[in-house]
């Protein structure tokens, strides 16, 4: 079983770290993982991409060929990669940051309030962790315990509680979306 995930955003939104946390959780789950990233010369504001491949087997080619899951927090990122999604794949976007128009056919599509939830929790910096919570409950690629542990170990300890709260909120939002309460194509 191999899952290819692609996170796209503007630089500074924390998606490289999100990819790293996914990878760490996968390793803790006993799987293999590769994470790579690309971004412009500037570390803030440019286009950023973080890719994670998680597999029970050895991972040869380390780049995403066709994503099983696309997570988009920026319109240009979504526009560039939405059509490259694997048939039957999953697309998760931020409802305020991405206008998906007509999402590709045949994929599961979720437009969720990540940035809004982070703002509600009092700090937009945890947007990426809200995203991870939802990605965890929707895709179930990694276990909740190990992803929460990866979040905790990658943030300053004084922000650990806020981040774990953000993760739980994200997880809940994802669960609700999965059960059809808030999700759906628009």
């Amino acid at each position: 079983m191999k899952t290819e995930m692609r996170f796209v955003a503007f630089g500074g939104q924390g998606i490289v770290l999100a990819g790293v946390m996914m990878g760490e959780a996968a390793i803790a789950d006993g799987k293999n993982a590769v994470q790579s990233q690309s971004y412009g010369p500037e570390s803030r504001g440019g286009a950023a991409k973080s890719e994670v491949i998680i597999s029970n087997e050895k991972i040869d080619y380390p780049m995403v060929v066709q994503a099983d899951c696309l997570v988009a927090l920026s319109q240009p990122g979504y526009d560039k990669y939405a059509d490259e999604i694997k048939p039957g794949g999953t697309i998760i976007v931020d409802q305020d940051l991405v206008d998906a128009g007509q999402p590709p056919e045949g994929c599961a599509f979720y437009s969720l309030p990540f940035a809004r939830t982070a703002d509600r929790l009092g700090n937009s910096i945890v947007t990426n962790v809200v995203v991870l919570g939802s990605v965890c409950s929707i895709t179930r690629v990694v276990t909740r315990e190990n992803l929460a542990a990866a979040v905790k170990s990658n943030v300053p300890s004084k922000f650990a509680e806020l981040n774990l709260q953000a993760f739980s909120e994200g997880y809940r939002i994802g669960q609700e979306a999965l059960s059809g309460k808030t999700a759906g194509n628009k």
């Binding site: 293999n32 590769v34 991972i59």
Partner: peptide
């Protein structure tokens, strides 16, 4: 540059 920046187990 690819392997230098890539994360793996």
């Amino acid at each position: 540059g690819i392997i230098g920046h890539m994360r793996e187990k």
